[in-house]
Design a protein around this nucleic acid. Structure first.
Lengths: 342, 342
DNA sequence: GAAAACACCGAAAACGTTTTCGATTTGATA
DNA sequence: TATCAAATCGAAAACGTTTTCGGTGTTTTC
């Protein structure tokens, strides 16, 4: 039951701890004979180094922290997938924390990870985040750090993002190209950068097509939920019966919109076209199939980790490191909810 | 940038490291004066204990490992949610590993967690798991361990499960109660206990209703995917045009079944009733809304962690510990895909 | 045959904490 | 005043590893 240590190997072999350690780590200054003996015994005894001791000695834990707003979320779970796969491939483990979109929790969790002395931190901001203190703390402490998806533009760090503004423009343009004249937008909360950018993209697309912007056509989610989509769909139809296109902040909400339309004999896309964002799995199985903007979630995870790894290596080797921003490609994917109008 | 230590506090205050440590940990044998001084300085300097050192000294890391087959999966992501919430509440962090349904990876990951010396391990088996060695290793080493969802009955450990056999029986009974006479079953892979139990439940329900069991009505998934559901639906309709009910291993596959039926003018539930399992979010938004068996995924996570915590505490206090099995309640939830036939 | 090079090994410090146990001081008691 | 108890502190060991540096002994070189 007791875990075996270098000391025990050393004692049974009648040599020093130092030599055992060196034999195991392929140091050149140990004879083939002793190395073999050590290796054999270590293997036979199933020796595994005590990682607590290794951590203390080397001052690194080969563990990174990940803070995301939500785990039960198709997009984020895909990102997690990418991160832990890439991390494991490179010998790192991932501790996952969930901010539940709460700034307060997010701050606690940053402190927690810092006190745990993870080798790096990966983070997507909560919707409440309008305050940077805790993030600056990470950077100030010199902990490798990269933001992805929901980022703060004010923080100088590596980032993996998409061009939300452009993607949103393309989505709205797609609506227009399919004959929509009056387009509503169900946007995300006020703080997150991507909600802001998508809103800006919406505005720009209208502008480009000389469609006047009407702020009463913009509906703002608080919780970004299915229920909100459902409720806003109803509200839109009440307040603007002639709306013929809706651009929705994310697929989950868009599915709520579709649910209301379906239940109330409002034909999609004939009466109203709907386009979502993120390309959740769900979108391809509902009726009508939801058009959306595809966003490479898995890749976002792997790239984010790679960036973090670069920075962790630079730190270990005391080399300078330049923060980088990677912008991933998005693509409008057309499905049934935006078929062209005759 | 440098992290501050007990030693530095001790030196600037002109007292010993011991006293500083004791002051911070509320030992009784330090005077109010010095305690206050230490507290103040520690706070001012933002001292946080070096967890590497604490780990080494206390031989625990306040970190647990979690191995699941898949992260991008509604059920599992819900369980993760429950686990990390409950863990954090109790001061534990969670390292998540994904076996990708591969036994080989699963074994590596167990070894990894063992070498990282996590305080406990939570695990749901991969579909490939038909071999116990690595699990027995965990138990043999005395590491607290609890299985959930996809478990091995042969391993003696705490477990959090549902009564798959009963739940499946109820699902099939529900189909029968709604007028189905010839019921197909799309089952999960051969190894997992829950696939076996659900199949057994299917058989028992037929038996109870004196419907003859026909093995050609049973279709076996390999990957438990949407696509398989789609393909099996086609196959079922070809081989058994008179099938009027399908019980499917899980909602994702059932959604594939619905997709095929929808596209081929096979009316659900009028021609064929369909019931899934697990109550994924998706099920309530597709057309027709999918009947299913609700399974408390979040709670499964919290209960699993609680069981693990009990065992970790018992181990720390050198108290004996009895493995427990918690059986969570399931419930058939009726939606549109199984409306009663006239 | 002396000097230099080489091969092999181990002592010891260091990482930063926790905890035991003994030492010292102070105040109270007989 | 001598004794005892209580209050306060610190030395030191321990957790298990990594790595530097110096010390042997052996072999090569001129």
């Amino acid at each position: 039951m007791k875990n075996i240590t270098l000391k025990e190997i050393a004692e049974t072999l009648g040599i020093s701890i130092t030599t055992v350690s060196k034999a195991l780590k392929n140091y050149p200054d140990v004879s083939p004979r002793t190395r073999q003996a050590v290796m054999n015994l270590a293997h036979q005894l199933q020796y595994t180094p005590n990682s607590f001791a290794v951590n203390l000695r080397t001052q690194e834990s080969k563990t990174i922290g990940l803070i995301i707003p939500e785990v039960v979320h198709h997009f984020f779970s895909s990102v997690i997938n990418g991160i832990i796969a890439e991390a494991e491939k490179n010998g790192y483990l991932v501790i996952i924390l969930q901010s539940n979109e709460s700034l307060e929790l997010e701050k606690k969790q940053v402190a927690l990870l810092l006190s745990k002395r993870v080798d790096g931190i990966l983070m997507s901001l909560s919707n409440e985040s309008n305050d940077d203190e805790h993030i600056r703390e990470i950077i100030h402490k010199g902990i490798p750090f990269v933001q992805f998806d929901k980022i703060s533009k004010l923080i100088h760090s590596s980032k993996v993002i998409i061009n939300d503004q452009l993607a949103a423009m393309q989505a709205v343009q797609h609506l227009i190209d399919n004959g929509c004249k009056k387009i509503a937008h169900i946007r995300g909360p006020v703080n997150p950068q991507n909600a802001i950018d998508r809103f800006l993209g919406y505005k720009k697309a209208l502008e480009k097509n000389t469609i006047p912007f009407d702020s009463s056509l913009v509906y703002t989610c608080q919780r970004v939920s299915f229920e909100e989509g459902y409720a806003f769909a109803e509200q839109i139809k009440k307040e603007h019966p002639d709306v013929d296109g809706v651009f929705v902040i994310t697929d989950l909400v868009a599915v709520g919109v579709l649910a209301y339309f379906n239940e109330n004999q409002i034909r999609v896309p004939d009466d109203v076209a709907v386009i979502g964002f993120s390309n959740w799995f769900m979108s391809q199985v509902i009726t009508p199939k939801l058009s959306t903007v595809d966003q490479p979630s898995d890749e976002m995870g792997t790239r984010a980790f790679q960036l973090l790894l670069e920075q962790m290596i630079a730190r270990r080797d005391q080399k300078p490191f330049q923060a980088q921003t990677i912008e991933l490609k998005t693509a409008v994917v057309q499905r049934e909810s935006t078929r062209k109008k005759s």
